[in-house]
Amino acid sequence: MFTTGFKFFFGIGVALVTAAVLYGYTTGGNWVGPISWGWKEGVGEHIGYGVLMFLGLAAMGIACTLIFFRDADPADQADYVGVEDIEPTMPVTGSFWPVIGAFGAGTMAVGLVLNTAIFITGLVIVSLVAVEWMMDAWADRATGDPEANRALRNRIMAPIEIPALGGAIIAVGVLASSRILLNASKLGAVVIAGVVAVIILAIGAMAANSIEFKINRNLISGLAVVLGVAILGGGVWATVEGEREFHEHEVHGSDSHEGDESHEGEDTDGEHDGEAEE
């Protein structure tokens, strides 16, 4: 018999397809158009007709899949696997990967707008997270012993993930903080660089100590989040604001001094860095 899920989704599908045909006729569609997907004659308003038709078909597709699964009723699922009963869910270990993945997605989104390098960094983070996530999901079900599962996972992944994650964090940090530094005044940039360096050192020291002294994980997590948000948010803000103005180094008689090494050597205020950036 038809299952409840099938009836619901198929009903929605039929209603939407019917609505599409009605919509077609009432918005200027010709005789055969709305019932032939516009193969012959017009369908009326294209967007409304098409959206209703595609949504209807998608709902019908879901309905057909659901009836194939018998609404995924527990008894049917157990029967499929060949056991008497299956627990609804298995324990899933906690993981940083979802939040890192979300951070990666955010980085991609920001990079899409502001900087290709940031986008690629986000893409790398998301790709790494996809692999890690998949391995976690595998490890959760590798055996019935959670400890053994964890050991298995770490044995395979730790040699890869520590350098990769470190690299990704450094890449994002360098790119985003460079935006901040380019936006800030010269003195401000020095101060910001100093403060960030001290914070990184402090977090590193605390993380190292936590192995032996069990420093509060929440504190470390909090600092990491604050730093991450500051770098990403600051990077976004700074890029939106634009770089600070870099004054062209005044070159008298530039034609005659072109390629004059000694002249470039006189540049002690770092303005040439700005030129290079530009």
């Binding site: 899949t65 699964f69 699922q77 696997v81 298995m90 079900r141």
Partner: peptide, 14 residues
């Protein structure tokens, strides 16, 4: 080691 318990096979597909 004990094997993992069976999971609901339709979850991922749904």
């Amino acid at each position: 080691l004990p094997s993992a318990e069976a999971t609901r096979p339709r979850t991922v597909l749904v």
